[in-house]
């Protein structure tokens, strides 16, 4: 282990520093993201969350871990993937933190850094989704399920047969995918957006200062450098 990899209280490892920068960049798509510093750890988010029982880190803990300078742990949790996007936490947060959007940002960060839990359906589902979108511009549900299950567990396809048959009997399955006319223009938009989505270096935001976690770290470093000058 190199010296810069050791986590000393008050100082971030190179890895954490990097994660922090990437995380702040992801937060650029969230209005008023600096509210994350005003978390009072009341736990309303966790109490409102219908799936918190299935999480290993609760939404409240997630914010606490971020402030303690441990994004790495968050990215390895099941929490960010199990979020169902119901926005209950975001609606009720008394500090007006956009919790769901923060979780989205962490999800994107985990994908960018290629950190997934061992059994990982969410990434496969989104990959299948992206593939179909590029082909048609619209979603075709049966194809989505087939692509997705072929990726994670082909045997599961059989278990879906009874439901599919019942749906088919009631004419609820569209066999032919519908396609948009200007598919080329649509693909050009996606290509351009993908390009703009790529990480750019050091777009770090300085607004997140606080007396704990990352904020405190920044202050400490400044204090140290002034000490050296003296």
């Amino acid at each position: 282990m190199k010296i810069e990899d050791i986590k000393i209280p008050g100082k971030l490892s190179k890895r954490e520093e990097d994660l922090k920068n990437s995380f702040f960049r992801q937060l650029e798509a969230v209005p008023n993201s600096e509210k994350i510093k005003s978390c009072i750890q009341c736990g309303t988010c966790t109490g409102s969350c219908p799936v918190s029982y299935a999480m290993d880190i609760s939404p409240r803990e997630l914010i606490a871990l971020f402030r303690a300078g441990d994004i790495e742990t968050i990215l390895h949790s099941k929490t960010i993937w199990v979020c169902a996007s119901c926005y209950a936490c975001q609606t009720r947060c008394p500090a007006l933190i956009k919790v769901t959007d923060v979780i989205y940002a962490l999800k994107r960060l985990a994908m960018e850094k290629k950190i997934y839990p061992p059994k990982f359906p969410v990434y496969s589902l989104s990959q299948s989704f992206v593939k179909i979108m590029n082909q048609y511009g619209r979603l075709h549900e049966p194809k989505l399920m087939i692509y997705f299950l072929l990726k994670i567990n082909p045997f599961k396809l059989f278990s879906l047969i009874p439901l599919s048959l019942r749906m088919a009997k009631r004419k609820r399955i569209a066999y032919i995918p519908s396609k948009i006319k200007d598919l080329e223009g649509f693909q050009r938009i996606i290509a351009k957006a993908e390009q703009l989505d790529m990480p750019s270096i050091a777009e770090q935001k300085q607004y997140m200062t606080d007396t704990v976690g990352y904020g405190a770290v920044d202050k400490e470093i400044i204090l140290e450098t002034t000490k050296h000058k003296e």
Binding site: Q26, A29, S85, I103, Y104, K107, R108, M111, S126, F129, V130, M133, F186, I189, I190, K192, A193, E194, L196, D197
Partner: peptide, 12 residues
């Protein structure tokens, strides 16, 4: 899309 690739999500 929104939760996975935000720029693409917003763009489409």
């Amino acid at each position: 899309y929104m939760s996975v690739k935000e720029t693409v999500g917003f763009a489409i």
